[in-house]
Design a protein around this nucleic acid. Structure first.
Length: 580
DNA sequence: TTAGGGTTAG
C-alpha cells in the first residue's frame, strides 16, 4: 500500500491485516491503496484536504502513488497544478505515464522537459523496451549524450525481455563497465530462455572477474533458480551454505527460490523445512510451496496449503489458483475444483487467462465439456494455451466438428497454432472417425507450417490410418517416419492388426517392438490374442512360454472413476481399496 | 523523505 501523509497523524485504523492512516482534525491525509488493498477498501472513507502544491517533494510522492494505482488523470492533474517542477517531478510523471501504459503522453512530456538527466533517458528507454518498441529504445539510446551503467543494464534487460538474445549478449559484451546488476540481468535472461547452463557459466565468469555478490545482492534468487533449472544441485547446495553464512536466507525472494529449488529435486521435505523456518506472509512464498507439492504429486498437501493461505488472509493470486486447480485436476476431484473456482470468482480471477485455462482443463477432464466451454468463454484475453486447452478437452470428448470450428476461429483471431493444437486436431479426427479430415490436417501442417512433428503426431496418424483399415499404408508410414517410432506408434498398428486379423503385419510389427523393448507385455498379449482368434494354438503357447521365460507378467488394465467424491482405482475384475 | 537498471512462485 502506498501512503503519503502530510501534517500530523492522529489516528490508526486497522482493517484486517491492513492499517490506514486517517486524520481526525484539519490535518491532511491521503490514502491510496494498491490493487490488493482496493478489494478491502470499500468501507473505508478516503480523506482529501488542501494540498500545498509548492511542496515539490510531497507532490512528487503523490504523483508516484497515483500512478502506481493506475490513477494517471489524478497524477497529471497534480502535475499541472505544481507551480514549480524540478527534474525529479518531471521524471516521476513520465514514469507514471509509462506505469499506466500511456506511452504517447510519456513521450510528449519527455520531449517537453526543460532539462533531462540520465534518469530521464533511462526511464523513457526502459518504457519503450517494456512495451516492445525496441527500435525506438535503440534510437534514444544512441541519442543519449551520456550513458551510465544503469542505462546499459536497461538495454541488456530490455533485449532479453523482448526475446532479442543475441543483441542482449552483444550489448553486455560491449558495456564499458559492469556491476552486479549487469551480471544478474545476464544470468536471469539466459536462465529464462532455458539456457540455464550458460547462465551458470556467466556466473563462474563473474566470480573469475573478481566480483563478489554482497549479502543483500539479488543475484542469489536468480542463481538458485538457474541451479534449479539446470540440475546443478551441488552448486545450489553450495550457494545455500554461502547464503546461510551471509545470513540472508530469510529474504522473501531467496526463501521462495529455495523452496522451488528443493521441490525441483524431489526434496519437498526440504522445501517444507525452509518454509517453516523462515515464515513469510508473502503470497509468492506460499505459492512456491503449493507449486512444489504439486510438482511432487503431493496434491492433497498442496490443497491444504491453499486453504491455509485463505484462512490466514493471504490472498491467492493467479499462480496460486493455477497450481491449486491443477492439483484438483490430478486428483480428479471436481468438487474440490469447484470450491477453488468459487474462491477465484470471489477474488475476481475467473476472467484471467491463467486461471481460466486451468478451469478449462479441470472441467474437460473431470466434468462436462459444456462447463469447460463456459470457462473458456469467460476468459477475457484468450492466449494460445486457452485455445489449446479447449481444443484438447473437446477432442477428448469426441466433439470433432466443434474442434474444427475452434481451429477456424484461432486462425481468424490471428493466433499462431503450435504442436499441441495440432495434436488436438488429429486426436479429434481420429476419435470421431473423420479420417480424411485428419489426413488433410497432417498435410496442411507439414506443408504450410514450421511446426516440428513429434512422435504423438505420428501416433495419431497411424491411428487414423489403422481405423480406416489402411494397415499397409500405416506400416509404410512408420517405415518412412523421420523420427524413431516409439512403442505407442507401433502398438497402435499392432492393435489394429488384431482388429483386422492381419497376422502377417502383426508378426513383423511385434518383432520390431520386441527388438526395441523385449519386456513390452502389451506386444506379447496382443500377438497371443491374435493367434488365439485365428485358432493357432501352437503359436499362442509359444508366445506365452516366451513371456514366462522372460518373466513378463500381463499388465492389468485400470481406470479412474470418481464415485461420490472418492477415487477408487478400479482394476479389471476387482475393486481395490480406495486411496483416500 | 520524491525519479532510472535486477531478483522469487506460474
Amino acid at each position: 500500500m502506498y501512503i503519503s501523509v502530510m501534517g500530523q497523524i492522529k489516528t490508526w485504523v486497522f482493517l484486517g491485516k491492513m492499517s490506514f492512516w486517517l486524520s481526525k482534525t484539519n490535518t491532511f491525509c491521503w490514502i491510496i491503496p494498491d490493487h490488493r488493498t482496493y478489494q478491502r477498501l470499500h468501507r473505508v472513507p478516503r480523506f482529501f484536504g488542501t494540498i500545498s502544491y509548492s511542496n515539490v517533494t510531497m507532490c512528487t510522492k503523490m504523483i508516484t502513488s497515483h500512478s502506481k494505482c493506475g490513477r494517471l488523470n489524478d497524477a497529471l492533474h497534480l502535475f499541472d497544478q505544481m507551480p514549480v517542477r524540478d527534474t525529479i517531478a518531471w521524471n516521476s510523471i513520465v514514469k507514471g505515464c509509462l506505469d499506466c501504459g500511456n506511452l504517447s503522453i510519456a513521450r510528449k512530456l519527455f520531449d517537453e522537459m526543460p532539462e533531462r538527466n540520465v534518469i530521464s533517458w533511462t526511464t523513457m528507454i526502459s518504457g519503450y523496451m517494456r512495451f516492445g518498441y525496441v527500435e525506438l529504445a535503440e534510437r534514444l539510446f544512441k541519442e543519449m549524450p551520456f550513458k551510465d551503467v544503469a542505462v546499459w543494464n536497461s538495454m541488456v534487460y530490455g533485449y532479453f525481455s523482448n526475446g532479442r538474445v543475441s543483441e542482449a549478449v552483444k550489448v553486455f559484451e560491449e558495456m564499458p563497465c559492469r556491476n552486479v546488476i549487469s551480471w544478474t540481468s545476464m544470468i536471469s535472461g539466459l536462465d529464462q530462455i532455458g539456457r540455464s547452463v550458460d547462465a551458470l557459466r556467466v556466473f563462474k565468469r563473474m566470480v573469475g572477474d573478481g566480483i563478489e555478490p554482497s549479502a543483500s545482492a539479488s543475484i542469489f534468487p536468480c542463481l538458485i533458480t538457474a541451479c534449479a533449472n539446470s540440475r546443478a544441485i551441488e552448486l545450489g547446495t553450495q550457494i545455500h551454505a554461502r547464503i546461510v553464512k551471509l545470513g540472508c536466507v530469510d529474504e522473501e525472494y531467496i526463501t521462495s527460490s529455495f523452496i522451488t529449488f528443493y521441490a525441483n529435486y524431489k526434496q519437498p521435505e526440504n522445501s517444507n523445512k525452509i518454509f517453516r523456518e523462515y515464515v513469510h506472509d508473502s503470497v509468492v512464498v506460499w505459492t512456491s510451496l503449493l507449486t512444489g507439492y504439486n510438482l511432487n504429486s503431493m496434491h492433497n498437501d498442496s490443497l491444504t496449503v491453499f486453504t491455509d493461505m485463505i484462512k490466514l488472509g493471504i490472498l491467492p493470486n493467479e499462480s496460486s489458483f493455477t497450481s491449486a486447480l491443477n492439483s484438483c485436476c490430478a486428483l480428479m476431484s471436481l468438487d474440490r475444483g469447484q470450491v477453488v473456482h468459487a474462491e477465484a470468482i470471489k477474488l475476481g480471477f475467473e476472467a484471467s487467462a491463467f486461471v481460466g485455462n486451468s478451469l478449462v482443463t479441470l472441467y474437460s477432464k473431470c466434468g462436462g465439456i459444456l462447463d469447460g466451454i463456459k470457462a473458456f468463454e469467460g476468459i477475457e484475453v484468450k492466449n494460445l494455451v486457452s485455445w489449446n486447452s479447449i481444443i484438447v478437452g473437446s477432442a477428448q470428448h469426441g466433439c470433432a466438428n466443434w474442434v474444427f470450428t475452434l481451429f477456424a476461429q484461432i486462425l481468424r483471431a490471428g493466433v499462431e497454432p503450435d504442436e499441441i493444437t495440432f495434436t488436438g486436431l488429429l486426436n479429434a479426427a481420429s476419435h470421431s472417425g473423420v479420417f480424411l479430415k485428419g489426413k488433410r490436417f497432417f498435410q496442411f501442417f507439414t506443408k504450410y507450417t514450421l511446426i516440428k512433428m513429434n512422435v504423438q503426431h505420428y501416433a495419431c496418424m497411424v491411428d487414423i490410418m489403422c481405423r480406416s483399415g489402411e494397415l499397409d499404408k500405416a506400416e509404410d508410414f512408420i517405415k518412412n517416419m523421420p523420427i524413431i517410432p516409439n512403442s505407442l506408434v507401433l502398438l497402435n498398428l499392432l492393435n489394429a492388426c488384431r482388429t483386422h486379423s492381419d497376422i502377417e503385419i502383426a508378426e513383423r510389427v511385434s518383432k520390431y517392438i520386441l527388438d526395441l523393448d523385449p519386456h513390452c507385455s502389451a506386444a506379447y498379449t496382443l500377438l497371443s490374442n491374435l493367434y488365439a482368434s485365428a485358432g493357432r494354438w501352437n503359436d499362442v503357447s509359444r508366445v506365452r512360454s516366451q513371456m514366462k521365460r522372460r518373466k513378463i507378467a500381463k499388465q492389468e488394465g485400470s481406470s479412474w472413476l470418481n464415485q461420490h467424491g472418492r477415487h477408487p482405482d478400479v482394476l479389471s475384475g476387482n475393486i481395490s481399496h480406495p486411496p483416500i
